[in-house]
Write a protein that binds this DNA or RNA. Structure first.
Length: 280
DNA sequence: GGACAGGTGCGGT
DNA sequence: ACCGCACCTGTC
C-alpha cells in the first residue's frame, strides 16, 4: 500500500529533524537522511524533506495537519523570541524549524510518566514495547494502547517491558483515568490543570509541564529538566532556587515560554555539547 | 566493578 | 515548606 500525499509545507519553519528530536515526541524513526516516520495514537505518517519543502504522506491528512500545527505561523514567534536576548537569538537560529506538536493527551500522560529520571533512547524502547504488547494493529505497526488496555494490565508487566519502578505509576494513573473527565482538565487554565496533574502518581512539576505543553498545547508553561537547569545557570540571571526556575522563565517568556523551552533544550543538548567538546 | 545520568515519591525535619 | 535519599536501567 502506498501512502497518499497529505500536505506539503516550506521547510524554513518546519524542520522535521528539529521538530522530532527536540524532546517532545518519542514515537518516530529516522528512515533515511531526509525521511522520518512518525506515529501518534493509531496514525502514521512519513515525512520527506527535499529542496526546501516537507512532503507528508499519510492516510490521515487532517489529523497530521493539526498534529504539526500548520495553522500557526512560526516565523512570527521565532522573530519575537529572537528579539528577547542574544542567547535566544542564537538558540532560535540553531533550532529555527522547531514546531510544537499537537499530541494526544492520554498518550502524553503515559509517555512523560515514563520519561521521568530516564533517557530518550530507553523511553522510546519502553513505549515501543507497551505499544507492541498492548496496542491494536495499525498501519505499519501498532497503535498506542487504549486506556482500558493499560488499566487492565498488571503493574509487573510494565516492569517487564522495561519501565522499572515506574510500573506502579503507569498502573495507578491508568486506574485513576478510567473514571476521570479529561475534557474537564482541557477546560481549565494552565495553573489549575497543572495542580490537577500533580495529583497523578508519577507526575511531578516537570512531567506536568510536559503534559501541558505537548498534550494540551499550553504555550505558557516551561518544563525544567537538567538541560534547562544548565541553560539557566549558564546564560540567565542568577539567584533563583531550582524550584523557581520554571516560573522565572514563564515570567520572562509569557505565552512563548513552551516554545522557548524547546529552542533552549535543543540548543543546549546539541550545540552546547559541541561547544564544550571543541573547547577542551 | 563502580560512577553517573535522569525526576518523582516519600519520610524526615 | 524544604531537604535528602531511594528508585531502574543503560552506558562509560
Amino acid at each position: 500500500m502506498i501512502l497518499p500525499l497529505a500536505f506539503t509545507y516550506k521547510s524554513e519553519y518546519f524542520n522535521v529533524r528539529d521538530t522530532l528530536e527536540c524532546g517532545q515526541i518519542f514515537r518516530y524513526q529516522r528512515l533515511d537522511e531526509n525521511i522520518y516516520a512518525v506515529r501518534s495514537l493509531d496514525k502514521y505518517a512519513e515525512l520527506v524533506t527535499e529542496k526546501g519543502v516537507v512532503k507528508a504522506y499519510s492516510e490521515d491528512k487532517e489529523y497530521f495537519r493539526r498534529f504539526f500545527d500548520l495553522e500557526t505561523d512560526y516565523s512570527v514567534k521565532a522573530e519575537r523570541v529572537s528579539a528577547i536576548s542574544p542567547v535566544m537569538r542564537q538558540a532560535v537560529a540553531y533550532g529555527k524549524g522547531i514546531r510544537i506538536l499537537n499530541q494526544d493527551l492520554t498518550e502524553m500522560i503515559f509517555s512523560f510518566i515514563i520519561s521521568a529520571n530516564n533517557n530518550i533512547k530507553r523511553i522510546q524502547k519502553i513505549i515501543e514495547r507497551i505499544c507492541s504488547e498492548l496496542g491494536e494493529d495499525a498501519y505499519c505497526g501498532k497503535a498506542f494502547p487504549a486506556l482500558e488496555r493499560l488499566a487492565a494490565c498488571p503493574a509487573e508487566r510494565f516492569a517487564d517491558m522495561g519501565a522499572g519502578y515506574r510500573d506502579k505509576y503507569i498502573a495507578a494513573t491508568a486506574q485513576k483515568l478510567l473514571n476521570y473527565d479529561l475534557n474537564a482538565l482541557l477546560q481549565m487554565d494552565s495553573v489549575s490543570a497543572r495542580k490537577e496533574l500533580l495529583t497523578f502518581l508519577g507526575v511531578g512539576p516537570k512531567v506536568a509541564d510536559c503534559i501541558l505543553l505537548f498534550g494540551m498545547h499550553r504555550g505558557d508553561v516551561f518544563p525544567v529538566d537538567t538541560w534547562l537547569k544548565k541553560v539557566y545557570h549558564a546564560y540567565f540571571e542568577q539567584g533563583h532556587r531550582d524550584s523557581e526556575i520554571s516560573s522565572f522563565f514563564c515570567n520572562l517568556f509569557g505565552e512563548d515560554a513552551g516554545l522557548c523551552q524547546q529552542y533552549l533544550f535543543y540548543f543546549q543538548r546539541n550545540y552546547g555539547q559541541k561547544l564544550a567538546n571543541t573547547v577542551q
